[in-house]
Every structure is written in C-alpha cells, then in structure tokens.
Amino acid sequence: MDLFLQQILNGIMLGSTYAVVALGLTLVFGILHIPNFAHGHLYMLGGYVTFFFITLLGFGFWTAMISSMIILALIGILVERVVYRPLRDQPHINSFISAIGALMFLETFVVVAWGPQGQRIPNPYPNPVEIGGIILTQQRLLVIIAAIVLIVLLQLFLKKTTPGTTIEAVAQNREGAMLVGINVNRVSSMTFAISTATAAAAASLVAPIFMISPSMGALLGMKAFVIVILGGLGSVPGAIFGGYILGLIEALGGGYISADYKDVFAFGALILILAIRPTGLFGREEVG
C-alpha cells in the first residue's frame, strides 16, 4: 500500500510538470495550428539558465527561477519572430523544418556552453516531510504545489482577463480576431512568451530532483506531444489531465513493472488512447 501511495505521489509530481509543459505547447498550438517542435528544447534551456544563475551568479533558487522565466519569455518571443512568423503563410512542412533547425541549434548551444554531461542544481529544500506515512522531500512537494499554482494562474489569466481572452479568440478564429482589432502578431508573441516562461518554470522546479542534460529536451518535448495529443490538440483541460495521466502511468508502470520501461508505458498509452479516441480525450468536434 505504501509503495502504491508513494508511486501515486511520484506520478502527481511528474504529472504536474508535464501538465505545465503541455499547457504551453497546447496554447502555442492554438495560435500557430502547428506544434512547436522546439518546445522541449526551450524547457531544457530554461533548466540550464536557472543552473547558470545559481552556480555562476550565486542567485537563490527562486530568484534564479524567475530570472530564467523572464529570459526564456524573451527567447520565446524571438523564436516566434525568427522561426515561425516568416513561414506563417507557407506550407506547414517549412515550419517543421525550421523548428528542427531551432532545436538542433538550442541543443548544440547548450553542449558547447555547458558540455554534454548532466549537471545538478543543488537542492534548496532537501529535507524530508511525511504525509500519512509517505516520505518525500520538500522539493517534490514544492514541485506539486508550484505547478498547481501556475496552472490555476494561467487558467485565470485565460478565462478572466482581456489579454487572456485574446489568446483564445485568435486560436478560435484568426480573421475574426483581426477584424475586432486584435493585433494577432502581438498575441502570438505573448503566447510564446507565456509558453516558454512556464516551460522554464517547470524545468527549474524539477532540476534539483533530476539532473539536467542537453538531451533532456528531446524526450520531454516528445512526451509533451503525447500529452497534448492525448488530451486533444489545442485543449487546455486536455493538456492538464493528459499531463497527470501520463505522470501516473509512468510512475505506476515504473514502480510496479520496471523503471526501464516507463517511457514504453507512456508511449504505449498514447497509441492505445488514440486507437480508441482519435480526437484525444478532450478533443472537440468542429463547432460553427
């Protein structure tokens, strides 16, 4: 029973970060109508920027994380401008190729700057806490809480504020948005900034638990796609639930069967769910 609860908690922790990363991906998908293939690599870069601020500039954990979010927001805006916007009216395949160029650049850049080996961010909160007989480090608890706070804030932003509503408006009808006076380019920049900043937050939160490495972006990016497809492309609740579902599948599969196969369970679940529901769990039929 303890093993079960322990794995559930691990799953929720993993799922929290997955949900945050997938949310950013799904928001950008809504705007671009293509997936941002470089999303996982921007997440990876976010982890490294936090690492840089902590180890080289001696920032505290939270200051480093917030600085990393700001830097990644700016990089996100740049990526949208340079990688995606010039190709907006071109066939989608051009954007894919451009994105692959961007992700190769990001990975190589990190290898050159920090080397190919993994790095560890010192854990700011290593002390264990006990909840109902289950022991976990404060940092793990923190990941869960911080991720949930981010998700709730993002939801409130999208649903309750005018700039948030413009993101939904552009995603639902680009021409309609232009005609009511929304600057679609500015909304694209804003969406990218939010998406990459939240990815940086997720990477920074888990960096003290797992190692950061230049190749971690590729696997996480792939998983974020799984989640977004699982939840239904462009769906915000789908990204959140998909994130937690994938986290739980990995933790339970990894805990009970074999940790080596945890990614197999994740991608196996994708194939299974899509076979049953091709539009994803929360995918909606076209309306209006």
Binding site: T162, T165, E168, Q172, E175, G181, I182
Partner: peptide, 28 residues
C-alpha cells in the same frame, strides 16, 4: 471602420457575452 464578415467569423467556443466584449477590444 468595422467589417461584419462573410461567414461571421465568430469565436465559437467563447460565450455570446465574451464575443461581444472582444468586439469592443479597440476601446477596452
């Protein structure tokens, strides 16, 4: 100068009220 376009180009998953509010975006 405002165009009410062919095909209406509404925001289908937003409420009627939010559609109208988006219409007032320029004078928010």
């Amino acid at each position: 100068l405002s165009l009410c376009p062919e095909g209406r180009q509404l925001f289908p998953h937003l409420s009627v009220y939010k559609n109208l509010m988006m219409g007032a975006y320029t004078r928010r």
